[in-house]
Amino acid sequence: MISLKICLIGGSAVGKTSLVRRFVDGIFSEKYLTTIGVKIDKKQIDFDESAVQLLVWDIEGTDKFSGFNPRYLNGAAAYIVVLDQSRPDTLEDAISLYQQAKVVSQSPAYLVINKSDLPSKLTQIQLDSLADFEFSHVITTSAKAGDNVEKLFELIAKQASMECEPNGE
């Protein structure tokens, strides 16, 4: 069995917990609850021949000033940086957190632009600037509508589990 640790980081109220709930339980709630410390969930994804178990670490929302506990990223197979497209300032938080994370983790990073069900307030320049960073993928999602959420985690599971496969000589 492949067991992978995946971390979610991002500014406050960008929808990290909602993404996890949508993925793990298949539900969405309008109610906002702030996460303190870290919340861990698990879900198994079945592929044709194998199964991968994801342990999703939902780390409390932080901004560029406060930072987060980098130890939480230890041993993560991948991490997801989340921003809210209806609040352009969360992009700044995301980039800042990504840069902090990069120092402690060499694992692939995925950028998630969440809340695609709301009108985007990101400018084209902002979007273009993302190309300067080395994200493995940039994906637009909606935890509320469920768009791309499943796909996001499947993509991460598939790529990360490929790393696990025994390499040849």
């Binding site: 067991s3 640790k5 410390g37 861990i40 698990k42 178990q53 342990l55 230890n74 041993g75 197979a77």
Partner: peptide, 27 residues
């Protein structure tokens, strides 16, 4: 990573979800 590598339980033990326990311990 806090990943559970293996767990064994005694008879009639009631520990549910050792994976989450492991991850939380590390956290």
């Amino acid at each position: 990573s806090g990943t559970l590598l293996l767990d064994v339980a005694a008879e009639q033990s009631e520990c549910n979800d050792p994976e989450l326990t492991s991850a939380m311990l590390t956290a």
